[in-house]
Write a protein that binds this DNA or RNA. Structure first.
Lengths: 252, 252
DNA sequence: ATGACCGTTGCAGACAATGCAACGATCGAG
DNA sequence: CTCGATCGTTGCATTGTCTGCAACGGTCAT
């Protein structure tokens, strides 16, 4: 909609791949060097890009700070956090909280497993949308046409032999999840890791977030993990109630 | 330099304080509603802002992803991480890694304490620059005029009675740190927490990052913590060597 | 010492961003 | 149920700002 801003913002993902000098930026944007320079300068003034000693540009510090503040302003996260910690203390496994936003599911909070074997994940990292328990929960709540549209747009990478292979299987799984009110990922993302998850709902009943407990096979079997389901669902329901209780849009 | 981009980017910190609707954004930017709308739309297309159901705007998901990629592209971080983990396994305390960038010091990695008592900090969060051990290390390496300029520009909040109170004391401390090659923060940020830190240097000897070990009084006294100094310095030196060994700018 | 390369600046032209005004939708009150 | 108000949205003419060009200066390698 706005050409100048559009160009400027296109620089960010470009630099996310690695540092680049002025010429490279100009070339990849398809604009004159002087234009790229002015855009970079503006980004620089706002701290979004940083100029390292070799004069090349890199993503800047304020980006972290912004992402930081953004995540701290998510009220679901704030409300949920203490419950996630409590759950972690009871079961000892890794606990995740995730939300859906614009065709992406991403983790917004995480409490690390107390076992030495940990799974790799990171707040802010997009979730493997076709297999993760939290992703199934969040997508299952969308309207039928939305689910269809998204399911057809997705790729279905076969992380393991148990990954959902195509849109049909995915939609079927979503229907199951929608019906039963909880979800699993049994080795669909990484062979040796299982997850169980439950939805967090707002006052209107819509799913606003999803949480999950993940544990590797070597610690507990899938069957053992499933015995935690009541606990997980209870925690999710508690968070839902507390979230619904607060005025939906509180802050000024 | 570029008015349009400047305005657009000004929206981000504004939204970082909390969600806002179109009118509020326009007002705080000092532009017409239609202008604000178009800027927001462009930001939206790039995923930097998100429109929640109540139509208000919030910082968006891509911001996390960008910050994520940015932090992963810092080669110091990549090289240091395994060493930080190893150090944590030896001493059990919280280990931080920080860099200096444009008048800010910020944590770029962290390994949590294995003790139940943890200090609050977060990757991406700006560091208390006038007291933190890592901040002293990073600033101590700047040239004398740079140090002076920064020292005078800073605020000196008295977090505790042992916080450095003014530019004079700060510069003096930096001189000490610069001389001895390591730094401490003994209760200068939080009364009950002590830190010791050491610098990580590039091939040219300049400080590129700093690391620290933090522990609350209740776990170890300051004196006990200081006995870890050789270990911390050795770890920092190991990382420095490894960092200098790799070609400084490797990636494409 | 010389040439090539890269970042930087001033300038005039052109295009894109701006503000205005009118429209439409949503919500609340009477 | 109707009316009014509020807020987001769109088309348009004007203006201003962004763009590309060309020339300059610095740095590095030959």
């Amino acid at each position: 909609m706005s050409q100048t801003v559009d160009r400027a913002l296109s620089i960010l993902p470009l630099l996310a791949q690695g540092p680049a000098d002025l010429g490279q930026v100009a070339e990849r944007l398809g604009v004159h060097k002087s234009t790229a320079l002015r855009l970079l300068r503006t980004l620089h003034e706002h701290g979004l890009v940083y100029r390292q000693e070799d004069q090349r540009y890199r993503l800047g510090a304020r980006l972290f700070a912004l992402a930081q503040e953004a995540v701290e302003n998510l009220d679901v996260r704030e409300i949920a956090h203490s419950h996630l910690v409590a759950l972690n203390e009871q079961c000892g496994h890794t606990v995740h909280l995730a939300v859906y936003e614009e065709n992406e599911v991403l983790y917004i909070d995480k409490v690390e497993s107390r076992y030495p074997v940990r799974m790799y994940s990171r707040i802010g990292k997009p979730v493997a949308i076709t297999v993760a328990a939290v992703a199934k929960l969040l997508l299952a709540d969308l309207t039928e046409p939305e689910r269809r549209a998204i399911a057809e747009r997705l790729d279905y990478p076969m992380y393991t032999s148990r990954s959902l292979p195509n849109a049909g299987a995915f939609l079927k799984e979503l229907a199951v999840v929608r019906e039963q009110g909880w979800a699993t990922d049994l080795g669909g993302h990484e062979e040796s890791i299982n997850c169980i998850g439950a939805p967090i709902r707002g006052a209107d009943g819509r799913v606003v977030a999803a949480m999950s407990v993940s544990a590797p096979n070597v610690v507990v079997t899938a069957e053992e993990l499933l015995t935690l389901l009541p606990l997980v669902r209870r925690t999710a329901d508690t968070i839902s109630r507390e979230y619904s209780g607060t005025t939906p849009t509180k802050k000024a």
